[in-house]
Design a protein around this nucleic acid. Structure first.
Lengths: 109, 109
DNA sequence: TGCCCTAATGTCACATCTGACATAGACTGA
DNA sequence: TCAGTCTATGTCAGATGTGACATTAGGGCA
């Protein structure tokens, strides 16, 4: 696992602690965070493969460069909604998204 | 296509019109709405397969019955974030979600 | 009939997300 | 060196999503 990813996950460490004391939700919370991480990684790959800058992608999305940067940084304050919109705007198809999600590149290792 | 689905899509018809006048974003918008529709259908299946009531799932999610109902109704005011959280809470695994998304049960027909 | 369980729909105060903007660092090429 | 491009990070007002609540409707059962 790349350290950049670890850093991201820690950054996205998030409110995980706040729900962990309850039921067995921690697993689902963790899965959710990992999913976001996967999507943001996919987004970065997808964007660069298309030769797009963050600014260009932002324009397509009618968003801003800073937000695209946050998406790729797995900023906790970015929704999956936005990530998926961005992926679609970056040329990813539904099937591509499914494939990305299927890859359970678990960060537990 | 079942009429219930059509109804949902129309209900989810959403702000599609508001962006359609711009670039070629309509396709991505449509894909996004269809994706939400797919996820809410999956959620309903997943929940009933588990023999859970909306209220029970809501408790797991720390949400409310009414919101679960809205999720399954593809209410525009429900985020993909919440849908995915709900799927995970309903016992779906990452792989299951990917599989659901991969099925491009296009509504265009 | 009444009671209970389930689900759908509307509303609202509050929380979260969003785009825009400013700024800064890294890296180019002139 | 400087100007230009790309990316990262912080902030904030306004937009959107959220849980909770009330209400309604339908079905099963005593």
């Amino acid at each position: 696992m790349k350290t950049s990813q670890r850093k991201k996950l820690e950054a996205a460490g998030w409110k995980v602690g706040s729900t962990r004391e309850f039921l067995g939700l921690s697993n689902e919370e963790a899965a959710f965070v990992e999913l976001k991480l996967t999507l943001s990684n996919s987004l970065k790959k997808c964007r660069t493969n298309q030769g797009l800058s963050q600014t260009e992608l932002a324009k397509r999305l009618r968003s801003s460069q800073s937000r695209v940067a946050k998406m790729e940084a797995s900023d906790p304050a970015v929704s999956i909604d936005l990530l998926i919109r961005a992926l679609l705007a970056a040329g990813a198809k539904r099937r591509d998204i499914a494939k990305a999600i299927a890859k359970s590149e678990s960060l537990a290792a």
